[in-house]
Design a protein around this nucleic acid. Structure first.
Lengths: 192, 192
DNA sequence: TTGCTCCTCACGTCACGTGAGGTGGC
DNA sequence: TTGCTCCTCACGTCACGTGAGGTGGC
């Protein structure tokens, strides 16, 4: 049997080459090679010339890998999930482990959503701050802008902006540390 | 001047050593060293013995790095943010670039939240499916469980479960491909 | 002096990216 | 034969982790 691109799977659908599978899933050929090295995916055949040939269902496996990747699984962890699944026939508690694993990932996903919500808030706050910084014309109340020296009407700088304060590191890697510069001053520090 | 741990910053507060800074921020010493190599953070002084000594405000910078990391910035991108910020005195459009950058990250963060919401849904669906798989007792309607052969009352397997289907790869890395095994059968395939 | 912390290399890890040099398939 | 795709090494990247071997500081 000489395998060619016109080979068909046992279900009558044409087999895919790596490039086809890559395009169908949005992954690179290199990534699919890697999944094979790690035992996550295997071509159902090879052509006479050594080309990998995949069943169309292989795309579901690649999308599954991408899904678990989005959930924070490493490729090794996915390998363990597959091994548990395959072993669940003989070891019923393997299914229990899978459920526990997915339950834990559900908790982590919800925590990630909450974290991103907070980051969203930080960005909105920072953008609002930088926006008023652009056309400074507000009354001074509590804090002077570290950038323009005026007050933006906020009680404190947003965290995303506050971390920008501090002297500029020099490019030298191992030279002596120059004296710290303080180009901007906060009102709180002036009061103290 | 011989610097010791009892050195104090210009604001009268004691200087921190890397270990102190690491504990205060939840980072490792190695990470802080790396931030220095990449120009994101610098000790304000060195002790006579070469120990790094930090102002307490350095912790704000480390937390800022962690914040941007959570937003998907690479350390190199953070470096560029700092350079833009420092350059904004002389180049006013640098501030514009910063705002555009943060605006883009806000979009990305919102997209990430939406993606995680969908992943959350996938997990809930998969857990529901695996839960009924544990004590199979439902009526057959559309799909046979790929695991237990019964029907779980769902129109299709959840994506997280569907990707598990397919033969088990062998451990050999370059051996010939054994014939594909199909331990489980889907109703749709039997109908075709 | 002991114990803890710090120092600087320098290699390992993870999920690929990116060629190098050669070959299959229509 | 041309052009595209595929093959197998094998090294690079990113954000650190993890020692190795030596030293500072109370």
């Amino acid at each position: 049997m000489t395998a060619t691109v016109s080979d068909h799977s046992s279900k009558g659908r044409p087999l895919l080459r790596v490039g086809d599978l890559a395009r169908a899933t949005g992954k690179t050929v290199r990534a699919i090679h890697l999944y094979e090295e790690l035992g996550l995916l295997r071509p159902s055949a090879r052509s006479a010339g050594g080309f990998r040939l995949y069943e169309p269902s292989a795309a579901a496996r690649v999308r599954w890998i991408d899904l678990l990747h989005g959930l924070g699984f490493s490729l090794q962890e996915m390998r363990e999930v597959l091994l548990k699944w395959w072993g669940a026939e003989r070891a019923p508690d393997a299914m229990d482990e899978l459920r526990h694993l997915f339950t834990r990932k559900l908790d982590e996903t919800r925590a990630a959503i909450e974290r991103h919500r907070q980051l969203e808030g930080e960005l909105v706050e920072a953008l609002g701050y930088l926006g008023t910084c652009q056309d400074c014309h507000l009354e001074a109340t509590t804090a002077a802008c570290i950038r323009c020296g005026r007050d933006h009407g906020t009680a404190h700088e947003p965290a995303l902006v506050e971390g920008l304060i501090q002297a500029e590191p020099t490019a030298t890697r191992h030279g002596p540390a120059p004296p710290p510069r303080a180009p901007f001053v906060r009102v709180e520090d002036l009061d103290a």
